[in-house]
Amino acid sequence: MTAALEAWRLSKTFGGGRRWFGRARAPVCAVREVSFRVAAGETLGIVGESGCGKTTLARMLAGLLPPSGGRITVDGKDPRAGAGAWGGLVQYVFQDPLGALNPRKTIRQIMHAPLRHLLGMEAPARAARIAELFDAVNLRREFLDRYPHEFSGGQAQRIGIARALAANPRIVVLDEPVSALDVSVQAQVLNLLADLQRAYHLTYLLISHDLAVVESVSDRVAVLYCGAIVELADAAEVFARARHPYTRLLADSAPVLGRKPAPAAAGELPDAPPRGCAFAARCSRAGDACRRRAPEPVCTRGENYVRCFHPVETPQ
């Protein structure tokens, strides 16, 4: 099986080097050796708390940020081959739907850009395609001549999705696509995304801090902590039968209707991950080995894995 998207030991380090006048700066590791494969038509959820490197990872996958190490392949090929082709393979749906639309352009101008610059379509063909896309995301065509500020968050996000689809991508990176939306509108957008995935056979990478959203939409889920994937598992099991203690903590912390709150554990995300397992300082199961060296991934089932010396054993 060739994966639709594969990341291999992908890393990103910010800073480092020297200033022109002054001392060397300490590098910040935002993403550390992230590897995964996503099959065509699959949805991989990536979940983690703020500062865990979710957005950095997403931006690298979309070609918006050059990785410091590792490689990305789309359909087994390097997406950098062929100038400007990355946008034709991977598209991005942004967290802030209004911020992703240029306030000084009409929706029509915004929609034309990918068709013209990526696909090189002629004007009449572009108009027909835009009409088709707007039908697909359930937007009225008279919206095309309006400016972004005239739209609500939910409508703007539909426009953002339509623009992403315009490029005919294989993969869509969804960066917190519903977290800026009202609760009652979130479900509309999530359902729309599911319909579109089926209709266009899209591969999704869904990034979110909301466990319930990730669980309900994804096929598999990767849990990110301090820039590294600590656990990769099927969505139905990742929280219900968490293997990594951090995944366990996340699942227990999430408020659930009708469930009594579990006693909360202390501690927060560290600024700079220490040597060894980044979670060791907050972990009740941590031993000496955890603080000395970082655990390697241990295969659980298929391509799923957990990075822990002492994974939680749960009955199957």
């Binding site: 509108v185 479900a187 999530l190 209707l257």
Partner: peptide, 20 residues
């Protein structure tokens, strides 16, 4: 409002409220 929020462990898609 209760139905449209995805619930952890429920294993189902939320039901949307139409409109704005």
């Amino acid at each position: 409002l209760i139905r449209c929020a995805p619930r952890l462990g429920a294993g189902r898609r939320p039901a949307a409220i139409p409109g704005l």
